[in-house]
């Protein structure tokens, strides 16, 4: 069964999400990948205000293809999350509640997620065209000189993800292979 949530995220919502759940997200989310993360942290270090209020928001690690005529956005799937690990604990400490990407996270990130009660979603990598179908609106709101890496505010509808790491630190990249083996064992009995 798929769980349906909308942004911004609340602690109650996050409490209802467990590792492995399929979730459909609707509402506003923000995109940022390598270069935008670097700049967000530079802004913070210089005591500048962040270009958007990250409190209770979701950041999607994504840099889209340009929109072809008639498109809201070009193909728009997730990029590998661990490249953002270095920057993530700081953003979580400031109130960021959710992340969407793909692949495992560092121990530091998972510890911060437990501390601040956050959730990490994974989207199926390589499915850019499918992801773009769930994006209703897209607008560059910061760092436009970064091109595909600029920060975009996007409206999503029923955006399909899995809970990869929940707020208790349960991690599908750790437990997934083991669960699969147990499943096989029950099937073979």
């Amino acid at each position: 069964m798929k769980k349906i949530i909308s942004t911004p995220l609340s602690d109650e919502m996050i409490a209802s999400l467990s590792c492995g759940d399929q979730v459909l997200i609707s509402g506003t989310i923000y995109t940022a990948r390598d270069a935008a993360h670097k700049r967000l942290l530079e802004d913070l270090n210089q005591n500048k205000r962040l270009p958007f209020d990250i409190k209770n928001q979701i950041v999607f690690y994504m840099g889209p293809c340009p929109a072809a005529p008639g498109e809201v956005i070009g193909p728009a799937g997730p990029t590998t999350s661990h490249r953002m690990d270095k920057y993530t604990p700081k953003l979580l400490s400031l109130g960021l509640k959710g992340m969407i990407g793909k692949g495992n996270r560092s121990l530091e990130v998972i510890e911060s997620m437990k501390k601040y009660y956050d959730v990490y979603f994974a989207c199926v990598g390589g499915t850019g065209t499918l992801c773009a179908k769930h994006i209703l609106h897209s607008e560059v709101i910061a760092y436009s000189d970064l091109g595909t890496e600029a920060i975009r505010k996007i409206e999503v509808e029923d955006f399909p993800v899995f809970v990869a790491i929940d707020a208790k630190g349960n991690n599908i990249y750790e437990s997934g292979p083991e669960k699969f083996r147990k499943y096989l064992a029950t099937q073979n009995n």
Partner: peptide, 15 residues
């Protein structure tokens, strides 16, 4: 996603 990309003649992946 593979079917959607072929029908739309758009990239499979944004990378």
């Amino acid at each position: 996603n593979r079917n959607l990309a072929i029908n739309a003649r758009r990239p499979i992946c944004q990378d």
